[in-house]
Simulated scan of single mutants.
Amino acid sequence: MEILEVYRERVNSHLENYLSSISPDNSYQSELNHIMKYSVLAGGKRFRPILTYTVANLFGIDVKKVDSSACAIELIHIYSLIHDDLPSMDDDDIRHNQPSSHKVYGEAQAILAGDALQALAFEIIASDHLTSPDIKVKLLSLLSLSAFKMAEGQSIDLSIVSKEVDIDLLNNLHKKKTGALLNCSVMFGAILNPYISKKDLSILDSFSNHIGLAYQVQDDVLDVTTSDEVLGKRQNSDSEKNKPSYPSILGLDGSVKKYESLYQEALDEIVFLSVDEKPLKNLTVKLMKRSF
């Protein structure tokens, strides 16, 4: 089995275990847990936790020490998707080829499920006995800052609907909304190594910023060029909501060139790591060639 699929199955298994370990005291708590599972276990690429596993593996970190960080990243991501899909946000009714959480359980319960997943993400790291206290502080600090930036980016996104914006504003928006959590995914894998050099940290930080923006530009392109079935959500959702996007500013060809250039810059950077960068290079190439 390909290593990326091994990581995907591993994080899926641990996510299910974490959610199943929440012992409900009554039917109301059981209902909330059911809603959380509905969104978390619906599928998805899991590339954020895969990034964490991949980077940690570069530095020889025992995979068992990576599980809590990988799951926490994905829970924050899923919480953001539940909230983003709400009518008061992006108003999307399909996610991973199934009805969005609020379409099945109502807006109020969907909001609570997102809140609970966010809280659970922090608890999972805080309670991991395999992680030393000083590393936990670093992980929790970065996760909280990344979650804040993500919310800040979503706020900017909502404020520019039906407005003309320049490319600098769009870049700033998506460095927060999409890039911050991607940066966190990469840096988590690095932080787990207590002996990592400042040079390697700097390289990975820059690498993650490049792929974070590249991923969003690519998403905007796929939103135009890919069907609902493949995307797992509505095609052309940005244009239908009058949201500024990279294709609307740079054009489709210009947007493709932009994300390809950003991925290439990221690949050029990691050759200077003190460890064999090949696994991270292979993952980056897969991201660049993704179809959804």
Rank of each mutant, 00 (worst) to 15 (best):
I156E: 09
K136N: 00
D134H: 11
K136A: 01
S141A: 12
D168I: 11
I156R: 06
D166L: 06
S141M: 09
F122L: 14
S132T: 12
A121F: 00
S159V: 02
F148Q: 13
D134C: 05
A180S: 14
I156D: 07
L140E: 07
T178D: 03
D134A: 11
L173Y: 01
S159M: 05
K138S: 14
Q118G: 09
L170A: 06
K163G: 04
D166K: 06
I124H: 02
E123Y: 04
F148V: 11
H129R: 13
H129I: 09
L120Q: 12
L130M: 14
S132Y: 03
S159G: 00
G179I: 02
E164F: 10
S162D: 15
S146Q: 04
N171E: 14
L117Y: 07
N171A: 08
L142T: 09
F148N: 12
G153I: 09
E164W: 05
L117K: 06
G153M: 10
P133W: 11
S146M: 07
L158T: 03
G153V: 11
L143P: 00
L169P: 04
Q154G: 11
K175M: 13
A147D: 02
K136T: 00
D168Y: 09
I125N: 02
K149G: 00
K176R: 12
L139G: 05
K175Y: 14
V161W: 01
D134Y: 07
S155C: 12
L145K: 13
G153K: 08
S159N: 05
F122G: 06
S132H: 05
S155L: 12
H174R: 04
S146W: 03
I125Y: 02
K177F: 07
S127A: 12
E123V: 05
L182N: 00
I167S: 09
S127E: 14
F148S: 11
K163N: 15
L140G: 09
N172K: 10
D128S: 10
D157R: 05
E164M: 09
T178L: 01
A116V: 03
L158K: 04
S146H: 04
P133I: 12
S155V: 10
N171I: 08
A119N: 10
S127W: 01
F122Y: 15
L117S: 09
F148H: 14
V161G: 06
I160P: 04
K177M: 09
S155W: 05
I160H: 08
K138P: 00
L139S: 08
L181Q: 03
D115N: 11
M150P: 02
V165K: 07
D168W: 05
L182Q: 00
L143D: 00
K177V: 07
S141C: 11
P133C: 10
